[in-house]
Design a protein around this nucleic acid. Structure first.
Lengths: 198, 198
DNA sequence: GTCTATAACGTGATAGAC
DNA sequence: GTCTATCACGTTATAGAC
């Protein structure tokens, strides 16, 4: 039996498009990237991109969904290894640091929230789903950490999860203007406000 | 002596354009609003907008500069009335609540940071100036509040100012997806983490 | 699957009349 | 100061050949 080269080629191109779309989304925003920004670097034509993703909305949705699935796998890894809450928090922060170091990308959520009134409803729905998952996970991690006397804070873990998620999202954006040091200042302060040792 | 009607007319149109541009900037972002979005509601033609602001860059810069000057006047009012640090912090939060209640607008800084890689350098410079002013003022307010035993927190007021500024910025954005309640959750938590009574 | 070619539209911007 | 008219360009998207 022979392998099916065309199927492989499809998967590769598709994945390459999604990789680039994800990067462009985080670097420039949904409105500010075009099919040309995708087809040119890949050495293909915009019609080829349309073959894989008929509309820009479909491309955006697929990009965000893949990002979300990757996040799910990431946190699943923590559950399977019985990681402690601090390791989980550090893991979430590590994702943001990765974005920061990778060309000052911002969280896709932050971009889509900023552009919220101008993006298609399908994209909004995907963003909502991602936001919910992140928030649930941060909240549970904070609650578990407090129960184990690792984190110390006043108020509900719901409120604290909102604060930390929003602060990290804002931190990545702020870093574009104020530099990477402002991002790390925020991470330091988040940890102090959880009663963690420096 | 007669008044000069044409001068007054100019000032009115100019101000009306800036009002609308500011709203559009905070609601849709810099890239997503057009001259048509401005001229149509005002009942004028796009050429008239170009008369007052030759380029979109000039319009964006003027919009942001006026926002910054208003902020300067706002904090000057606090200095002249010898307001205490808590009143100042609440004043800053009140600006954000005003944005939230006014059609889920976000902080202009947040929008411009998200679009940072796609906006003209003149706009970036204006955003930097605004960011600096806000940060200095929040930092000084936090430091004074700690000295007066009103605020209580670990770490430097520099770090804490970064955290609070980023969190409020992220809170306005998050509210678009998660609703206004998530914004107020973050405000509550910020105050708790400053050792303020509920 | 990818190409060429093109459609249909919106954009920022300008020239010149009033 | 505002208008009409127009330009040059970039955008998403489609039809049909290969």
């Amino acid at each position: 039996m022979h392998a099916k080269p065309q199927t492989i080629a499809l998967a590769n191109t598709r994945a390459a498009i999604l990789d680039l779309a994800e990067r462009l989304l985080q670097e420039k925003g949904y409105n500010a990237f075009s099919y040309k920004d995708i087809s040119n670097p890949l050495g293909i034509k915009n019609a080829a991109v349309h073959y894989h993703f008929p509309t820009k909305t479909a491309l955006g949705v697929a990009t965000l969904r893949r990002y979300r699935e990757r996040f799910q796998e990431y946190i699943l890894g923590f559950e399977q290894s019985d990681a402690d809450p601090l390791a989980k928090l550090n893991g979430y922060i590590a994702i943001q640091i990765d974005h920061l170091r990778n060309g000052y990308r911002v969280c896709p959520l932050g971009i889509l929230e900023a552009e919220y009134n101008t993006i298609p409803s399908e994209l909004r729905a995907e963003a909502k789903a991602l936001e919910k998952e992140i928030w649930f996970w941060v909240r549970d991690t904070l609650a578990a950490g407090r129960e184990q006397n690792i984190f110390h804070f006043m108020g509900t873990s719901e409120d604290k999860a909102c604060l930390i998620a929003a602060a990290l999202q804002g931190a990545l954006q702020m870093a574009r203007i104020a530099g990477a040091s402002s991002f790390f200042a925020i991470v330091r302060q988040i940890k102090r406000d959880l009663g963690l040792k420096e």
